[in-house]
Amino acid sequence: MLVVPALAGLALLLLPMAGLAWRAPWGRLPGLLTADHVLTALRLSLTTATLATVLALIMGIPVAWMLARDNVRGRGVLRGLVTVPLVLPPVVGGIALLVAFGRRGVVGGWLEQTFGINVPFTTVAVIMAQTFVAMPFLIIAVEGALRGADSRYDQIAASLGASPWTTFRRVTLPSVAPSVVAGAILCWARALGEFGATITFAGSLPGTTRTLPLEAYAAIGAGDTDTALVLSVIMVAVCVTVLVALRDRWVRAL
């Protein structure tokens, strides 16, 4: 009874990827992989996704730490809010970023008038869009680990005279390091795949804002199916690698 829907489900999940592998222009792969526009997009994607992950680590770990503490008021509401980007359609995130940081946006208008800084349609906008969408993955992973960690170690460190910052850095953080790594890898993979928020908030210009997924979208629009397929194969390969790297931590960290 259960076999038929199970097979249908597996077919739905696996056939598209099999199709990619089947249709991919393997013969032209070396040429396409070294094509200028593909390399440009790849370089931009790797750089921005990595910077977004660094930003997520710098800001996300403290957020996770705050959410894991019991004495922060409105913690439940706050946790709900920071996880909104997990389920929000990314294009809505892009529109939200545009009305906040756009030229006529609340923050964007002030930034432009005061400092002459323009965010949308720059590489910075790509990184912001990616951080917006990907950081919750890191926050959730780290918060879960912090909550599960034994707080007695922190108390002992504090009782031995360690300052809160030293305790956090030398005791708390190392104890949740595996989850931080797992969260960071997930966050990086999500940032690498970001499309909707990026194209809405950062636009699409080769070398500046056109990341791998945007390049694939532009290629399919231009009728260049081979390039689109090659880019898709690259992204599938990256995702599979990430999941393999995480296979032991997957269940435990999340």
């Binding site: 545009l98 349609f121 636009g203």
Partner: peptide
Amino acid sequence: VPDTLATDVKEALALVTLGEV
């Protein structure tokens, strides 16, 4: 010297009406 290449004409127009370009 474009800052973005819009995927269709309405997107380009929207960027102007929004004042983003």
